[in-house]
């Protein structure tokens, strides 16, 4: 077989299919996981009727959403109304093109040569992630605006304001990682944590906190779930959506949770690295494949997301803005200065 064809077409195609397939499955089961975890937090059982212990619930949900009548409200901007769900789900999945799930692997000797399990490693991966994930807000604003519903519009405007304001401190939190890693490539960032024998969460604890709070806000999850605050705004920007179009918004939210969790893992928790890569006697942890470490860390973040939802009330819109601009932004700026100073002192 022609080498470039194999290298540039076949392998990436296989990877795309695998990543999309696995991701969709994970996202589907994430909804199940969320319902189960929330149920156990809330002294109830959660879905347990469809299939053994409810394991087929996501399948049933998907089927239900597929066969549901696809309504477009009378006064809606039809084209934009259809476009919005696509605008939100595509960027959410697109980001996974550059997320490094693990180091190059021969898959237990099944492959003739080591292949990186991620789609690609670009040297501006971090910028790519930030840029692409920001497109999602268009989906929300356009969807809310096109619905011709006051609740949708208010939800959309809130979401737009929220995502833009929280992107700023998030960007600064990420800059503190850049200072430590010296690269925008996500693979290089993980490798930098390997070579420095230190997860960046330890020097960058403050940055990590800011990043994760902003991440929760970016994904519109509790306690920052104002755009879809169901008690005030009915269902916020997706009030008028039903069937698969609604499912796209829903899936995008969960995919974005995975994006934020994956990015937090890569930036702060050493990506696929085992815990304490510098401690020799913990070497036995190396028998766990790197990919599993990555998945475990992401799962941990996802659990925290759900835990938040089971614990916190929701902020009011102006309070949310207050937290973002008056607390997180100055803190993240100070953090950049602090980390910069430390990097300067350590590296000389």
């Amino acid at each position: 077989m022609d080498q470039p064809l194999y290298q540039f077409i076949v392998i990436p195609l296989v990877k795309i299919v695998v990543i999309l397939g696995v991701l969709s499955l994970i996202v589907a089961y994430l909804t199940f996981f969320e319902r189960k975890v929330l149920a156990y937090i809330q002294v109830r059982l959660g879905p347990n009727r469809v299939g053994p212990r409810g394991w087929l619930q996501p399948v049933a949900d998907a089927l239900k959403l597929l066969v549901k009548e696809d309504l477009v409200p009378g006064g809606a901007q039809k084209f934009v109304f259809m476009l919005a769900p696509a605008l939100i789900i595509v960027p959410a999945f697109l980001v996974f093109a550059v997320i490094p799930f693990g180091p190059a692997t021969r898959l237990f000797g099944l492959l003739p040569e080591a292949i990186p399990p991620y789609l690609t490693d670009v040297n501006i991966a971090l910028l790519f992630v930030l840029g692409i994930s920001s497109i999602g807000v268009y989906g929300i604003i356009l969807g809310g605006w096109a619905s011709n519903n006051k609740f949708s519009l208010m939800g959309a405007l809130r979401s737009g304001a929220q995502m833009i304001s929280y992107e700023v401190p998030m960007g600064f939190a990420i800059i503190s990682v850049l200072l430590m890693a010296g690269s925008l490539s996500l693979v290089k960032i993980v490798e930098a944590q390997q070579s420095s024998h230190l997860w960046f969460i330890f020097p960058g604890l403050l940055g990590f906190g800011i990043y994760f709070i902003c991440g929760v806000a970016e994904t519109n999850r509790n306690p920052f779930d104002l755009p879809e605050a169901e008690s005030e705004l009915v269902a916020g920007f997706h009030t008028e959506y039903s069937g698969m179009k609604f499912a796209f918004f829903f899936l995008a939210e969960y995919t974005n949770m995975l994006v934020v969790s994956s990015l937090a893992t890569v930036l702060f928790l050493g990506g696929w690295l085992r815990p304490f890569p510098n401690v020799a006697w913990l070497g036995f942890l190396g028998i766990v494949p790197p990919f599993v470490w990555f998945a475990l860390k992401v799962a941990g973040f996802i659990f925290v997301y759900l835990w938040f939802r089971g614990t916190f009330p929701r902020y009011r819109f102006d309070q949310l803005m207050h937290v973002g601009w008056k607390w997180l932004l100055p803190l993240s700026l100070a953090n950049v200065l602090l980390v910069g100073l430390i990097v300067l002192l350590v590296k000389g």
Binding site: Q42, S231, F312, P313, R314
Partner: peptide
């Protein structure tokens, strides 16, 4: 009241 404020768990408690 707490559900309306987003604190769903208390409702079940």
């Amino acid at each position: 009241n707490l559900v309306d404020l987003g604190a769903l768990t208390n409702f079940w408690y």
